[in-house]
């Protein structure tokens, strides 16, 4: 089933929130400073012409929903089906897909060895995948440019 990135609301909203509060590339208002409403913005094209578009909604100083969608010049959305043939629904590059799915027999799942965390919130730093790529930042800045 096709599932566009627009449904990644919580994760994207969190990323927007982090960016607004930290002011990554230029001073930006915090979410608490924004009026209620829905904000939309787009990035400039990347090297292949793909453009990122963001939409997020603020209610009572909190980002309640957000979506970020990247679209190719021909209108193809970078969603869960990106890379699959439109006619067959199969991967365009079968060799890649097969290789990526190939199992290495020696590997196992080791979750049972993990210890339970009793004080999981007492940490030194929280590691997370970065979302601070250029198009995302540009789209947020564009969305807030009229404020």
């Amino acid at each position: 089933m096709t599932r566009p990135h627009s449904v990644h609301a919580l994760g994207i909203a969190a990323a927007v929130g982090i960016m607004l509060f930290s002011g990554c590339s230029s001073p930006l208002p915090t979410a608490a400073e924004l009026p209620d409403g829905t904000f939309r913005g787009t990035s400039s094209p990347d090297d292949q012409g793909a453009v990122g578009a963001i939409e997020f909604t603020v209610r009572d100083g909190v980002i309640t929903s957000a979506s970020f969608v990247v679209t190719d010049p021909d209108g193809t959305v970078h969603d869960a089906d990106y890379g699959l043939s439109k006619s067959t629904g199969e991967p365009v590059d079968e060799a890649f897909y097969q290789r990526a799915q190939a199992a290495v027999a020696a590997e196992q799942v080791y979750v049972t060895q993990f210890k339970e965390a009793g004080d999981v919130d007492q940490v030194d730093v929280i590691a997370g995948a970065s979302l601070s790529h250029r198009q995302f930042v540009e789209a947020v800045e564009d969305a807030l440019s009229g404020i």
């Binding site: 089933m1 599932r3 990135h5 449904v7 990644h8 609301a9 919580l10 994760g11 994207i12 909203a13 969190a14 990323a15 990247v70 970078h78 969603d79 869960a80 990106y82 890379g83 991967p91 365009v92 590059d93 060799a95 890649f96 897909y97 290789r99 990526a100 997370g128 995948a129 979302l131 790529h133």
Partner: peptide, 25 residues
């Protein structure tokens, strides 16, 4: 971030697969 469980694979837009020239699946 924000991946919704359900599908066995996803496309990571910001990481290119050099074998296909497209975003990594």
């Amino acid at each position: 971030r924000g991946h919704r469980l359900g599908a066995a694979s996803l496309v990571v837009e910001h990481v290119l697969d050099p074998r296909t020239g497209r975003s990594a699946r």
